[in-house]
Write a protein that binds this DNA or RNA. Structure first.
Lengths: 224, 224
DNA sequence: GATAGTGGTAAGTAGCACTATCCACTATCC
DNA sequence: GGATAGTGGATAGTGCTACTTACCACTATC
């Protein structure tokens, strides 16, 4: 398989494939002659994986590279990879110190205690969680904090489902892929479902949108 | 209140405030003299809101502007705003047509039917959902599709919690804010909680990460 | 033997989110 | 009342990212 076929199979333009090769997102093909190389199904797969991570997982090129490097690393377990995937994907939003932050930390600590989630003080997602709570408090929206318990319960349910799928696999390479895809595409999956569920629940509670002139705002048009 | 105080209260640099004023993210102050203007608490609030939307909601400047424009629009209900918020925040990922897409559409349709979610055919989040399913199928990860039911059930639980908070409010302006914040910061909130839950569940099932040398990869360091 | 395609590299581009600089003017402090 | 810092407003520039274009010597194919 040459580059044109690789491009056709994945929908990724040839110059972009060259770029990904340069950036190490895609391993080079098996060289065959001075300026010819052979690509296989593994390249198609990797390219689709990278595109999915970037498009739906919202990863940057650099983050995607870090992830696929770990994917190729034989000395890493799927549990470790989960941590790496989580780290690479969590933007570090260190909230500014102050009384607001201290209060938010207490809120989050209490939540973790209620859930029975222990020893997560070092987790890279904690600062983001605390930062969101700080923002909500500064905006005077403490009335939104009680939903944290519902969110956490739902999150635990999702996590159990995630880990169950991984647990069924003994093939290490596949397990790693499931971890990465589950962590990253799972976010996109869940937020889509959340929006759909919101629409469903809203309609059940309040009926359809009140202003018929605005229904077209649900369609893809402007202001994206 | 002058610009310097506005900057001090929010942590946003003065040139950035000027930029936001130019871009319409922040309404101009009440003019007082030829080159002086007065800002109030509403400006502080709006600025914090915008920062939260951008930082934790991941919105672009253009999307944030579209949202705050709708926030100021008196002729829009909170139900409509939910739709607008969802639309502005959902990146439109139209998956390419083909047999893979048809199959994915059927998978999603069945899921919606099982959940009892009707009349969502036009919802802007559907293409994203279908796109993720297409990606998973193309990567041969159909074994991840069964978790969709768990995700959807969790999403419904979260949506009910979301809408309950909104329903408690009669003040329209506050309700709109809750909708926007809930939709956008809720994503960040939930994915943080999901990662924490994954860590918790993983540890309960498999014990701590196997390779102690890799534990430092949980800390913020490289490869972001 | 003409043409299209190949791998590889260097340079260019478009968009985004600021940031710097300048301006005439004003408020404030000594 | 004069120096200084700050104001609103505009234009231009910056740094980054994710490609895209252009070019090269070479090769496969018609």
């Amino acid at each position: 398989m040459r580059m044109a076929e690789l491009s056709a199979d994945t929908g990724v333009p040839v110059p972009t494939i060259k770029y990904y090769l340069r950036e190490g997102l895609l391993p080079p093909g098996r060289p065959v002659g001075r300026n010819q190389a052979e690509y296989g199904p593994a390249h198609v797969r990797r390219l689709k994986l990278v595109r999915a991570l970037i498009e739906y997982g919202g990863l940057s090129i650099a983050t995607a590279r870090a992830l696929v490097e770990h994917l190729d690393d034989p000395g890493i377990s799927s549990g470790d990879l989960l941590g790496v995937a989580q780290l690479t994907v969590s933007a570090q939003h260190e909230p500014p110190p102050g009384p607001g932050r201290d209060a938010a930390e207490r809120v989050v600590e209490d939540l973790l205690a209620r859930m029975g989630w222990h020893d997560l003080r070092e987790h890279p997602s904690l600062p983001t969680l605390i930062g969101v709570v700080v923002s909500l408090s500064e905006l005077g929206r403490e009335d939104m904090l009680p939903v944290l318990d519902d969110y956490a319960a739902a999150a635990e349910r999702v996590a159990v489902a995630d880990l169950t799928v991984v647990g069924d696999l003994e093939d290490r390479e596949r397990a790693m892929e499931v971890v990465v895809l589950g962590t990253l595409l799972g976010d996109a999956l869940f937020s889509s479902l959340r929006r759909l569920a919101q629409a469903h629940v809203t309609r059940r509670l309040h009926g359809p949108p009140t202003d018929p002139d605005r229904c077209d705002e649900w369609r893809p048009s402007a202001s994206g």
